[in-house]
Amino acid sequence: MSQQETVLFDAQGPKARRRTAIGTVVGALVLIAVAVLVVLRLAGQGQFSMELWGPLINPGNENFELVWGVIGEGIVNTIKAALVAMTLSVVIGTLIAVARLSLGRYARIPLIGVVEVFRGLPVVVLVYLCVRALPDAGVDLSGLPGGQVFWGLIIGLTAYNMVIFAEVVRAGVASLPRGQREAALATGLTNGQAMRIILLPQAFRIMLPAIISQLVVVLKDTSLVVFVANFDELLSQGESIIRNLDNPIQTFTVVALLYIAINYTLGRLAQWVQARQARGSTAKATGGDDLVPVRDGA
């Protein structure tokens, strides 16, 4: 038993071990039974036929290359949108955080209001507004590389995520020891220089895991464009495959697995970076790990 479990229950004696063994067998049997039931049901509906799966898993199938070409394009577009939105969010979020930290007590009230409003809005509503309503309002994005829907999506995602990053950056800077800023000012740096040269670089190091975790959220949110307009990201590409091959379960399974593969890798990367930092000197200097809340509820 690892250490974390000992809080909830004691080291097990012979009786408890027997009970655990029984639980293991029963639990495994129940899970296997459910899995078998689902598989049988699916097989009964002919969901395992090669006709449905072939284009996705059999390289010999006539549609295989076409289908994976479409999926590949979707992955590229999803990652591209996520990275662009992410970069813009980090940059603008940092600006908002710096503005909030350097403004006076009353001057920052409108800024806090903006942050709260954007944080309270569903990202899908923001994306919808940016894709559909910006052109109505006279903002023409179609001239930009990538086209109108792409930039509408990017602006929507950025509007939502920049305020989250503003909070992350603020927490990161606030978690640094006061001596850092005091020492910077004492050596003759101005306020702005201290922020730029001393505080932000350290804050970014602490924030790195939070940034990677948020990338997972942004990556998932790119798929929301499917409800708003046509953009060839992964989920939309999956839908167009389904329209042609009529195999929803199979294609959605592959699409879900691809999302899981990408996001799981990113999640592990975030954990690894965090663990590395907890061992490193930054964490010691700032008094512990987990200083920046990694909020992943989106």
């Binding site: 038993m1 974390q4 097990q12 998932k220 989920l235 996001n263 999640g267």
Partner: peptide, 28 residues
């Protein structure tokens, strides 16, 4: 957090599946 391995494995599977899939895909 239970001491029963199959349940723990199921919990881990559940969390890594639903946390890493977009809500839109889950809905579809």
């Amino acid at each position: 957090v239970s001491p029963v391995p199959p349940l723990r494995a199921f919990g881990t599977f559940w969390v890594s599946t639903f946390r890493n899939t977009p809500l839109s895909v889950v809905l579809f």
